[in-house]
Amino acid sequence: MPLPFLTADRAFDEAADDIALPFDDRDRWRRPYRPGPWRVGAAALLLLLASYVLFAAVIIAFAGGLSGAAACGGGALLIIVAALRLLRMGVWVSARGLRRVGFLSTKTLPWTQVTEVRTVQQPVRWLGLPRTVQGQALVLVRGNRRGEAAAPLLTTHNADFLARPEAFERAADTVEVWAEEYHRG
């Protein structure tokens, strides 16, 4: 079964430098980068934990405790959903706008409300933890009166780009090109 949210479209990697938006169907939501090794590793560990919990559910069911087996099965299902949601997290773009998928929430912003998307040097959170380090962040400036910047969309120290500065630059450039393309239109 293909998991389209797991990998970015190959066209992002194979596109020529002069073609920024190499897609025929621009209305489809796509992530302009592949999930990083930290995110994939965490999801793999969660799926491994889910397999152990499912195995425990089978043992409990054979022992005769159906309510305990159902509870373990439900817990394993929650762990699997959490792993899949962890893989889906990130920034997605389409002709309709920019979508930021978090673990518990998804926010979509139409391109008409985007004033600017730019890369800035600032303190960023390391792997989403409270500790901050100096790095780069792709920030979105909304079209409100105050012109305040929102939380960073991508950073050089998040689970997708830690120790992968080239991948961050490529993803940030792609999101900036999408924003420029649809902000003009």
Results as ranks from 00 to 15, higher is better:
V81Y: 14
G97L: 07
W38E: 13
D18Q: 06
D13K: 10
P35M: 03
R31L: 05
V40H: 07
I60A: 15
M89P: 09
L138N: 08
A11C: 03
S67V: 15
W92N: 00
Q134K: 13
L138A: 06
E14M: 06
A16Q: 10
L127Q: 08
L47W: 10
L138V: 08
A82W: 13
L84D: 07
L78N: 11
I79V: 15
S51Q: 14
V177N: 13
P152W: 04
R146T: 13
G41T: 01
D17G: 04
L154A: 02
R26D: 06
G65K: 14
G185P: 11
S51E: 11
A16R: 09
P2W: 09
R170L: 06
V175Q: 02
V101Y: 10
N158L: 03
R145V: 11
A70Y: 13
D173R: 13
Q122I: 10
L45G: 15
G90R: 02
M89Q: 15
P152A: 11
Q113S: 15
A95P: 01
L54C: 14
A50F: 09
A171M: 08
E148K: 12
L129V: 09
F12H: 00
R125P: 06
P123K: 07
R146D: 12
T112Q: 11
P123Y: 00
V175W: 02
W92Q: 04
R142N: 07
A82T: 14
A172I: 04
D24F: 05
R125D: 06
L54I: 11
V117K: 02
G185R: 13
F55H: 14
G147P: 03
L54Q: 12
P123F: 01
M1G: 15
E181I: 00
V117N: 03
A179V: 05
E181Q: 12
L78K: 09
A15S: 10
A69D: 10
A56D: 13
V139W: 01
R10A: 09
S94C: 12
A151I: 03
D17Y: 02
A151P: 00
L140I: 04
L6Y: 03
R26K: 09
T112R: 12
G68L: 12
T119Y: 01
T156C: 04
F103S: 08
W178K: 00
H183E: 08
Q136I: 00
Q121E: 14
R99I: 06
A150V: 07
V177E: 13
D160W: 01
L104V: 14
